[in-house]
């Protein structure tokens, strides 16, 4: 597997450079991710663009608009760059028709919240599941 990963590194590097080119002039670009969902939201926006659901400039404008609304607000909500990113993604997908039903999204979110994490896997297992003994 390590050989495979090494070959991959170049291709990954290329892909990464392409994405960086895309986001380099975004407001607040270059922010490291502090939560896994931020990375997921980031990847979804780029994936939807690659699938041709919107122009990158449309997403960009929506993000700028979301940040502007926050800046002109009462500052009651704490700043989170990727919340604006998520907001922009939802708006841009709604405008493009790819996500027309916001009620469905609300409902699905409720479902996720009411399902315990790893619903089927909540027992701590305090011993190794396998031991392969030393042979010599």
């Amino acid at each position: 597997m390590s050989t495979e990963l090494r070959t991959d590194a170049t291709e990954l590097g290329d892909a990464r450079r392409r994405v960086e080119k895309l986001v380099c002039d975004m407001p607040g670009a270059d922010r490291p991710f502090s939560e896994p969902w931020e990375l997921r939201a980031f990847a979804m926006a780029v994936a939807a663009y690659h699938e041709g659901h919107y122009e990158w400039s449309e997403f960009q404008l929506s993000l700028i608009e979301s940040i502007r609304r926050w800046e002109s607000g009462d500052g009651g909500e704490p700043w989170s760059y990727y919340l604006h990113w998520l907001d922009a993604l939802e708006h841009t997908l709604a405008a493009s028709g790819a996500l027309s039903d916001s009620a469905a999204l609300d409902e699905r979110t409720r479902q996720v919240l009411t399902t315990p994490r790893d619903a089927n896997h909540h027992e701590a297992r305090r011993e190794p599941v396998t031991i392969d003994p030393a042979r010599r």
């Binding site: 990954l12 892909a15 990464r16 994405v19 991710f33 969902w37 990375l39 997921r40 939201a41 980031f42 990847a43 979804m44 780029v46 994936a47 939807a48 690659h50 699938e51 659901h53 998520l86 993604l89 939802e90 997908l93 790819a98 996500l99 469905a104 999204l105 699905r108 979110t109 479902q111 996720v112």
Partner: peptide, 27 residues
């Protein structure tokens, strides 16, 4: 919410889970 959004988008064929995985992997 992000999980729900991803699930919906994949169901609707807006994107594939492989594409999102790939981009997430890059970062």
């Amino acid at each position: 919410r992000v999980k729900a959004l991803e699930a919906l988008l994949i169901e609707k064929g807006v994107m594939t889970t492989a594409a999102v995985d790939r981009l997430a992997e890059i970062y």
